[in-house]
């Protein structure tokens, strides 16, 4: 690790000006990803701006009925908050199916949104990786790519986004709030993470020096039900091989609202728009749900080692949507 300066920011303005958009500066949240990557030499910041004492640690209902989650709310507090458990079970379940109790006590909402891929080659300085060193190549394209993407990848990067929370946030159409040198702005979570394309070094559309200040959860349609399900290589404390977040609302037996997002399959949480369109207005049956899921997964292009993800995701989504449509 390189020697690093440290500033404990007490206001958003102080944090933003201490960071200043410099490439060698990083905001420090829970540190569970940043400190890990500093030890590996993947991150080499010279300036740390600690944002954990900013007054961004509340979960509050807004006048319009949405719920605002501050950027420094710890993952465990987010998952346990009554407003989140009662109104957004999919968000609570997604957080609780990630990492461990200890890590969730440390990890922040903002840090979770910006955690880097778990691609083993990204973490190994001896390997070629366009995300770590643009233009150096991608060891995973020809290497062991069991854990990698089946949707939306490019020849330059086949990494997946590892977050569980972000999959649920995509399914509830959450909005990221940012503060930066150019003022504040908001970005829907579904547009916050990028596909790798020609620039895999950019995970998201965040601009240099921008600070995530919070996430807005808009009200779900009345009577909507939601669920998150994740498959991993052991029963707990492992990243997703594949996961699905789904929100369904039925009226008179017909689907009026459907939001489906996959995790573990792509460089960003993957909204299954084709599935959603196929479901809307239908009376769900086992066959219609399976057809709708297939409509999205027909787009998948598996790599050498990960064709299993397509059938896994198909079974997961079919099961989750099937059981939600009987409870809705």
């Amino acid at each position: 690790m390189k020697p690093v300066s440290y500033l404990r920011a007490s206001s958003v303005e102080e944090a933003a000006s201490a960071h200043g958009g410099r490439t060698e500066a990083r905001y420090l949240g829970g540190g569970t990803n940043l400190v890990d990557l500093m030890k590996l030499g993947v991150e080499r910041p010279e300036v740390l701006v600690d944002i954990t004492r900013l007054p961004l640690d509340g979960v509050r209902e807004q006048p319009d009925g949405s719920v605002r989650v501050g950027a420094t709310v710890r993952n465990s507090d987010l998952a346990a908050h009554p407003l989140v458990r009662e109104r957004y079970p999919v968000v609570s379940q997604a957080v609780l199916s990630g990492a461990s109790g200890q890590l969730r006590n440390m990890a922040t909402t903002g840090g979770n949104l910006l955690q880097r891929t778990r691609c083993a080659y990204f973490q190994d300085l001896a390997k070629a990786c366009n995300k770590r060193v643009p233009g150096s190549g991608c060891a995973a394209v020809v290497g062991v790519n069991h854990d990698h993407a089946v949707l939306g990848h490019s020849p330059h990067c086949v990494a997946t986004n590892p977050s569980d929370l972000c999959v649920a946030l995509a399914a509830v159409d959450a909005v990221v709030e940012l503060a930066g040198p150019g003022g504040g702005r908001t970005v829907p979570v579904t547009e916050f993470h990028r596909l790798p394309g020609d620039h895999p070094e950019l995970d998201t559309v965040i601009r240099p020096g921008e600070l995530i200040t919070g996430v807005l959860l808009p009200p779900l349609p009345r009577g909507a039900v939601s669920h998150y399900r994740k498959v991993r290589e052991r029963a707990s404390y492992a990243f997703a091989l594949a996961s699905v977040a789904a929100v369904l609302q039925l009226e008179g037996g017909e689907i009026r609202h459907a939001a489906v997002a996959f995790g573990g399959l792509a460089h960003r949480p993957w909204r299954a728009r084709r599935t959603e369109t196929a479901l809307l207005g239908t009376r769900p049956s086992q066959e219609s749900v399976a057809r709708a899921v297939e409509a999205e997964l027909a787009e998948a292009v598996p790599l050498r080692d990960n064709a299993y993800k397509v059938s896994l995701a198909r079974d997961l989504a079919t099961q989750v949507l099937g059981s939600l449509s009987t409870t809705a």
Binding site: Y6, L28, T32, Q102, M106
Partner: peptide
């Protein structure tokens, strides 16, 4: 009072 992994917390942040 909360359990954390002490290997990933920077001491300076715990003032």
């Amino acid at each position: 009072g909360r359990r954390v992994n002490s290997c990933l917390v920077l001491a300076v942040a715990l003032d």
